[in-house]
Structures are given as C-alpha cells and as structure tokens.
Amino acid sequence: MKFEKTAGWLDWYADPSKPRFQLPAGSVDAHCHVFGPGSDFPFAPERKYTPCDASRHQLFALRDRLGFARNVIVQATCHGADNRAMLDACLHSGGKARGVATVRRGVTDAELWDMHHVGVRGVRFNFVKRLVDFTPKDELMEIATRIAPLGWHVVVYFEAADLPELWDFFAGLPTTVVVDHMGRPDVSKPVDGEEFERFIRLMHEHPNIWSKVSCPERLSVSGPPALDGESAAYRDVVPFARQLIETFPDRVLWGTDWPHPNLKNHMPDDGLLVDFIPHIATSPDRQHQLLVDNPMRLYWPEEVGRTRLNT
C-alpha cells in the first residue's frame, strides 16, 4: 500500500554524526519509534498525520552507530492501536528491545500476555489533543488496572498547561507512570516558575512517577546546534532536564525520539543529540543511572535480578 506523507513532513537525518560522547556500556535508548514501512504495516485510518517510513532495520542501524545496546520502542500514534510494527521490531531485536503499546478497552488478557512475551512492558496514554482523539479516563483507568498485574507501567504524553486537569488522574494510576519529555514545559519560562514547579511537585508527591528528559529539539526555543555541534545547542532546555536528573536521579530516562515525528523547523542530527547528554547528566554516575541503571530496572528487571544474584 502506498501512503503519501503529510505535507511538510521532515524525514529523519540520514547520516548522523558519530557522537563525541561515549555512552556507558549497556546504554538504552528509552524512547524511539518505528513507522511502517507502510507497505508491510499500514498506517491507521484515524491517524492525524502520515509519516515517512522508518523501519526496524534503520532503527537498529542507528542504535549501533550511536553506541546504544538496547531500545525501548514506543507505539506511534500514526499506527493507532495496531501494534504490529512495534511488536515486529521487538520480536526481531534478539532481546535488545522492549515495547510500549497502545491498547483499547476490548483487548483480551490473552493478547496482553502475547505482547508481554514479545517484549511489551507498558502502555501509552496520549493527551496531546492535536495528535489523538479523546479517550474517556475511565477506560484508561480500566486498562491501567488490567496491566498492573503484568508488572507493566503507563507512559503519559501531555502538554504542561494541561497538567492541572490531569493531576488527579495521574496520581490515581495503580502502576509506575513515566512522563514523556518532562511534560513538555515551556522553556521560555523560568525553571523555578509556577508551571515547571508544579511538575516537580507532582514527582515529589508521587514516587511512582518518572520522567523522560528527552526531546530538547522539540522543546527548545533557542534552537539547534551550529554546524560545528557547539555545546550551546538547545541550551534553554538544559536547566529543566538537569534539575530533574539531580532531584530524581533514580527516576529519569533518556531517548532519541527517532525518527522525530512532527518536527516543523529542523531535523536533528542524532549524534549531536547524544552529545547533549553530558550537559544535563554531568557526572559518570548520573550518566550511568540515566542510561543504564534506570531503564534496565524498568524494562529488563529480570536481568538486573540475575546480575545481583551473581555478584
């Protein structure tokens, strides 16, 4: 099946630079996607956009080039609740990928177990109105209650201005909750301002809530790096991500967000995104927590347990 990309869609960066920053051994890219290919895994009829193809082969090639050991593949909204592309990538990863699915109320227990065996460890609830249609919160709570016995978590995607109306729902979820991209703060506002302080307070009051400190390219107002990859790139995002890492070092994750859906102004070089990491995680210990310890504990806990038994 042939799909025409949404007008103005930016394709992913085809020749990323080799990062200067050497990732710790065992690092996990904890937020990335696969799109199609549409000929094999058609995009959902109800989608809000039609992306470029971005296959598992291309994702795994990027993983190896950047120096990651593993991926967490998050279901893309353009595929709706048809998780086949994500599941196929997990299945062919040799155990090096875990998945976060989108499911509806009608999913059966057998289907959830099948996804678990392939590598799914969470479900995603998207509250960004321009990307998805509204799903009743009682349906989402029912799904969260059903996945809790599997040891799965809930990933939530929302915009900072909507946190007050979502607070009680997030606080009531019976699982670990992982917030995408720091809750999309407005980084033109102060890091100690009311909006971001509200998010910090949410994490303080609810120790089951984690955050991804990802997507500086999506949040930044100051913009992308200069051609030489200077360290000032996305500098306006640094204080927000650094505060989360220093305040909640055992509850933060990082990911590339490849292939960077719905970016309007520029497509980032993924190698330079990796070089952003030491500006927000400023010591080897913090880097190891962010990139190895935390994602392994959340997505591969059985391997963490074996390691402890053998030490």
Rank of each mutant, 00 (worst) to 15 (best):
K189M: 07
L150I: 08
T175K: 11
M141F: 08
H117T: 13
I143T: 11
V123R: 07
W167F: 08
G151A: 13
G151N: 13
K189C: 06
V120E: 10
P190E: 11
L163V: 03
V179L: 15
L166W: 00
E194M: 02
V123Q: 09
P174C: 12
D133W: 05
P174Y: 11
E139K: 07
V178A: 13
V132E: 14
L112T: 01
D138F: 11
D168T: 02
E142S: 13
V179F: 05
V178E: 12
A171F: 00
V120T: 09
F158M: 05
V120L: 09
L140I: 07
V107R: 02
F127H: 07
D109C: 02
R146P: 01
V155Y: 10
D180K: 05
I143M: 12
T145K: 15
F169H: 09
G172D: 10
A144T: 09
V191R: 10
F196G: 05
T176Y: 06
D133M: 04
K137M: 04
V178R: 14
V123L: 15
D192C: 11
H116W: 08
W167N: 05
V154S: 06
R130E: 05
G122K: 08
L131P: 01
V155P: 01
P185V: 06
F158L: 10
D192V: 08
L150S: 06
D186L: 09
F170E: 06
E195P: 00
H153P: 02
V178S: 12
D186I: 04
R124S: 03
E142L: 06
T145F: 00
E159M: 14
V118F: 05
D180I: 01
G119N: 07
H153R: 15
R121Q: 06
F125K: 04
L173D: 02
H181L: 09
A148F: 04
T176D: 13
K129T: 06
R184Y: 02
L140T: 02
A160R: 15
D138N: 13
F158D: 00
L173E: 03
E165M: 11
L131C: 10
F127S: 02
P185L: 13
V107E: 01
R124L: 06
